[in-house]
């Protein structure tokens, strides 16, 4: 379940947590776009380095490193497929450009993962839903969205509860080799599905008992306001993305050359 930790909101107080979700979403999108526009290692490295202070400011280094470690497998796949296919299509020759490109692609993945993991780790689903609501998206949709975002940890929790109940009555799930253990998890599946359905019925029962759907328009206890810090960040992000697009077409970006390899 560690992989999901990089997407699970962690309630902390930091400047980043304090920012409006829309601001953060914009920043994540800007980072995402820039990393797509450029495939040069230099730019991607700068982008990566630029994210580090954000992660530290948000105090989410632990969760972030979990999500990167969770993605390590994918990073290796990206790196090796780029290398292998490049190598083959390059007439079986390893060049500096190929190596740099493959590394850049892996970097791109890390950057995109990090930028969205910063967003989800520092934005409570409540605020996320609020941001959607305030963008005049119908409440039913916002509700469905937040419920879906929340569903992963809820399901994980539910699964844990059932496993605990089963091993407390003698089902051995901690021993044996991988295959055996996987087989042991099968009794978990049906109750998990049944429980998920039952839970959603209970949820509906509880929600209706608290007047869910009584009024067309509902209010929200919280409200989001674009603060000064938000405005500054939004404007800078827009400037940065324009600069990036401009330089992509008008500037020559230096290429790194790895010694001992042909260019």
């Amino acid at each position: 379940m560690k992989v999901f930790e990089g997407l699970k909101f962690s309630r902390k107080t930091s400047i980043i947590h304090f920012l409006d979700p829309r601001t953060k979403f914009l920043v994540s999108c800007v980072i995402f776009l820039i990393s797509l526009i450029f495939s040069e290692l230099i730019i991607l490295s700068i982008l990566f380095v630029a994210q580090i202070p954000l992660i530290l400011l948000a105090k989410i280094q632990r969760e972030w490193s979990h999500s990167i470690r969770g993605g390590a497998f994918l990073i290796i796949i990206i790196l090796s497929t780029n290398l292998i296919f490049g190598y083959i299509s390059n007439n079986f020759q390893l060049t500096s450009r190929l190596l740099i490109h493959s590394i850049a692609m892996a970097f791109r993945f890390i950057i995109i993962t990090s930028s969205f993991s910063i967003f989800f780790l520092t934005t409570s689903p409540d605020n996320l839903s609020l941001a959607l609501e305030q963008s005049h998206i119908p409440y039913e949709f916002c509700f469905a969205f937040t419920t879906a975002v929340r569903f992963v940890p809820v399901l994980a929790n539910e699964a844990q509860t059932i496993i605990d109940a089963q091993r407390s009555r003698g089902l051995e799930v901690e021993k044996g080799n991988f295959l055996k253990r996987v087989r042991k998890y099968i009794p978990l599946l049906i109750p998990l599905i049944v429980n998920a359905i039952r839970r959603s019925l209970e949820l509906a029962e509880a929600m209706e008992s608290r007047a869910f759907g009584a009024k067309k328009q509902r209010t929200n206890i919280y409200s989001l306001k674009i603060k000064k810090a938000d405005s500054i960040i939004i404007i800078s992000s827009l400037i940065i993305i324009f600069l990036a697009i401009y330089s992509k077409f008008n500037l020559q970006i230096p290429i790194i050359q790895i010694p001992l390899l042909p260019p």
Binding site: D164, R167, S168, R169, G170, L171, E172, V173, E174, K175
Partner: peptide, 14 residues
Amino acid sequence: TTVAELSKNVGLVF
């Protein structure tokens, strides 16, 4: 040891 093994001896009602 494992929960399953312990449970033979220790029955827990939640």
